[in-house]
């Protein structure tokens, strides 16, 4: 039995806080669920928070790389946030570079990076929500 990892959608970004020690099956399922959600929601960014992970081995490392690669094919950008220093050191010693995975220090930075990415390029869609509010304001 494994705890389900939530996938939250905020604007055009999927936020995935990994707060459990994932077994291999959970990791594989998570990968599939993220891709399904990307397709379903049309999200353009994936923010994976691993700040609570005390260990990333080659299996989880590969999963992160795969998510980034697959998301890219689906026109979405993946950012991994909050890697603990001990995890970073161990990953490098293991020989895993997490190719193609962008990493930032915290959720704020990650969200800013992804949001900036869509501003301008995707203004119409990004502000559809805000636009609706604006229209309401105009009517009053």
């Amino acid at each position: 039995m494994s705890a389900r990892i939530p996938i939250l959608k905020v604007g055009r970004v999927l936020i995935v806080p990994i707060q459990v020690d994932m077994d291999d099956q959970t990791a594989i399922q998570l990968q599939e669920r993220i891709l399904t959600e990307l397709e379903r929601t049309g999200a353009r960014g994936v923010l994976i928070d691993i700040s609570l992970l005390e260990m990333v081995d080659s299996f989880i490392g590969r999963m992160l790389s795969d998510i980034a690669a697959m998301s890219r094919i689906m026109d979405a950008r993946t950012v991994v946030v909050g890697m603990q220093p001990a995890v970073a050191i161990t990953l490098v010693e293991l020989g895993l570079e997490l190719k193609g995975v962008e990493t930032v220090l915290n959720v704020d930075e990650g969200f800013k990076l992804l949001r900036d990415e869509f501003d301008g390029a995707d203004e119409e869609y990004a502000y559809r929500g805000l636009g609706a509010i604006g229209k309401q304001d105009n009517r009053t």
């Binding site: 291999d24 005390e54 081995d57 080659s58 603990q84 220093p85 001990a86 995890v87 161990t90 010693e93």
Partner: peptide, 17 residues
């Protein structure tokens, strides 16, 4: 120390797999 706990846990994960 913490970094060595992580190293040992990672090795255990790799080799148990």
């Amino acid at each position: 120390r913490a970094i060595d706990q992580t190293r040992l846990a990672t090795v255990a994960s790799e080799l148990a797999r």
